[in-house]
C-alpha cells in the first residue's frame, strides 16, 4: 500500500471515529438528546467504545488473513480512539450521572457485573494504551 493510500485510510478512520462524538455534540446543540440525555449519552459512548475496541482488536487477525502489513498500522490509532471514548463514557457516568456519589458508584460496581465489565474495559485499555 502506498504512503498516500495509508494517509488516506488514517484520515478516513479519524473521520469515522470522530463522527459519533460530532453527532452527539450536534444533537446537544439542538437539544435533541431524548428526554433522558444523560442516560442516552452514556449508552451511546459505551456502544462506540465497544465497536472501536473490537475494530482495533480485529486488526491483528486481519493482517494474518490478508497477509498484508497495513492493518497493523491502524491498530494503535483505533485503540487510542477506543480509550478516548471509554474515558468520555466513564466521565459522563461519574460526573453527570452520579455527580461524584462515590459510595453509590462503589455499590453499583461490586453488585452489578455490567458496570464491572465497563471498569475492567477501562483498566484493560489503559494497560493496552500504556503498552503502545
Amino acid at each position: 500500500m502506498s504512503r498516500r493510500a495509508r494517509i488516506a485510510l488514517k484520515a478516513a478512520i479519524w473521520g469515522v471515529c470522530l463522527a459519533p462524538l460530532a453527532t452527539l455534540l450536534t444533537w446537544f446543540a439542538r437539544d435533541d438528546l431524548t428526554a433522558n440525555p444523560i442516560s442516552f449519552v452514556t449508552t451511546t459512548l459505551g456502544d462506540w467504545t465497544l465497536r472501536i475496541l473490537v475494530a482495533s482488536l480485529a486488526m491483528t487477525p486481519l493482517r494474518l488473513v490478508l497477509g498484508a502489513a497495513w492493518p497493523i498500522t491502524l491498530r494503535r490509532l483505533l485503540g487510542l480512539f477506543a480509550f478516548f471514548y471509554v474515558c468520555l463514557h466513564a466521565s459522563v457516568w461519574i460526573v453527570l450521572d452520579f455527580f461524584f456519589d462515590w459510595p453509590r458508584m462503589w455499590e453499583d460496581i461490586v453488585k452489578r457485573p455490567y458496570i464491572t465489565m465497563g471498569m475492567l474495559r477501562r483498566r484493560g485499555s489503559g494497560c493496552l494504551d500504556g503498552s503502545v
Partner: peptide, 19 residues
C-alpha cells in the same frame, strides 16, 4: 430490592439533573 442488572435505590426524574 435491586434489579439484577442495576440498583433501584435512586432514579432520575425526567427534566432534572441530579438523581
Amino acid at each position: 430490592v435491586d434489579h439484577p442488572r442495576w440498583s433501584q435505590a435512586t432514579e432520575r426524574r425526567i427534566g432534572e439533573f441530579r438523581r
